[in-house]
Amino acid sequence: MTVATTDAALVLEDGRIFRGAAYGARGRTLGEVVFTTGMTGYQETLTDPSYHRQIVVQTAPQIGNTGWNDEDDESDRIRVAGYVVRDPARMPSNWRSTRSLDDALAAQGVVGIAEVDTRTLTRHIREHGAMRAGVFSGDALVTDEAMLEAVRASAPMKGADLAGEVSTAESYVVPARGATRFRVAALDLGIKTNTPRQLAERGVELHVLPSGSTVDDVLAVAPDGVFLSNGPGDPETQTAAIELTRQVLGREIPLFGICFGNQILGRALGLGTYKMRFGHRGINIPVLDATTGRVAITAQNHGFALEGEPGQRFDSPFGKAHVSHHCANDGTVEGLRCSDVPAFSVQYHPEAAAGPHDAAPLFDEFVTLMEARHAQTH
């Protein structure tokens, strides 16, 4: 047996071990190790519910320079299972900072590791794929064999039903800013704070519903539209959300989905999903619009994707549909449009904070869809 001599260790399920210094809380955490390529926005990343049960590696070498503030959270707390960085800031410097990133992680019990060669680690994940891992420090730093055994005994991401673990327990309302133009029912599969904000700015009153809501719960809101949020886990497990989506499509209520919502809509239309090798995570990912040929630089966070080809047209139980967007890097399906019912979705994040904002007009498209439906029915 060998005992680690450093302060902390990141142990991957294939046996690779990265040594480093304890960062944030001390202890043990398990999850799927993934990397994100954003050079800014670490606070938004850490608080994104879609990162639930994932150990996030920052590819940007310097992290924590702007500290932690009370305005930029995308949910009520840090959601990542663990955190891996190379060069943490010794002292934060920003006029909005109220504490250091290290202090924020420690206060919320998030176990991290610093001084890791994140370039080598990222290349390893790209080559071998996202996999189960664990961060160990303090009293939890035991023999390599024991740590590896704990990692290999943890649950995989494929087949994981996680949306209910991050969804709201009770429904709540986010009022429109100014006059209320439309009412939307949002299925919370892991919704980010900036999404209701974006819709509220467009005169939408948002009724956020728990992930287990039924079509009767949705109809009780008397919505002009339905929104499917982002979220964590394997979309194949979301049988209730998929059935709810089918019920909404059958009633021809305008529907808009992002990220996890794109996968839910796709499965409702009859497409399959699969687990990606290492996923798309970052704020610099190019997406091509099949209709206009325009490229948008987007924020993304997903490890599963829809089966399909760029520009593919297909028949669904609700009429014709097509793959409207794809990733310029690898051809991954990045959006769907229905021709015969008022529904569309994208795999990326138009509500993105800390950016980019190329895709923000998609919220306007949703409003336009509701306007057209309202004019048709009235």
Rank of each mutant, 00 (worst) to 15 (best):
T5H: 12
T5G: 15
V11W: 09
L12F: 10
G15Q: 01
A21D: 01
A22I: 03
A25W: 07
R26M: 15
G27P: 03
R28Y: 07
T29A: 07
G31N: 03
G38S: 15
Q43T: 05
Q43Y: 02
Y51P: 05
I55N: 08
A60W: 12
A60N: 15
T66A: 14
T66Q: 13
N69I: 00
D70L: 12
E71R: 08
A81H: 02
R86E: 13
A89L: 02
T98S: 10
S100A: 03
G112Q: 03
A114K: 02
E115P: 00
D117V: 03
T120P: 01
H128M: 02
G134M: 00
G134D: 05
G138Y: 14
D139E: 12
A140M: 13
V142W: 12
D144F: 04
D144A: 14
L148W: 01
E149N: 12
A150E: 04
A153W: 00
A153H: 06
L162G: 07
G164W: 08
G164D: 13
T168K: 02
E170Y: 05
S171L: 13
A179H: 07
R183P: 05
A186V: 03
L187C: 13
L187T: 11
D188E: 11
D188L: 14
G190F: 07
G190I: 05
T193M: 07
T193C: 05
T195K: 09
R197K: 13
Q198P: 07
H207E: 08
L209P: 10
L209M: 12
G212M: 07
D216M: 05
A220P: 07
G225L: 04
V226D: 05
D234K: 03
T237I: 04
T237N: 10
A240P: 09
E243F: 04
Q247R: 15
Q247T: 05
V248F: 11
V248S: 12
R251A: 08
E252H: 10
I253A: 14
I258T: 15
I258A: 09
C259E: 02
F260R: 06
N262G: 11
Q263P: 06
R267E: 10
A268R: 01
G272I: 06
R281S: 15
P286G: 15
L306C: 04
G311M: 09
F314S: 12
G319L: 07
V323H: 01
V323M: 01
S324P: 15
H326T: 08
C327R: 15
T332I: 03
E334P: 10
G335A: 07
D340H: 06
A343N: 08
S345G: 08
H357E: 12
F363N: 04
D364E: 15
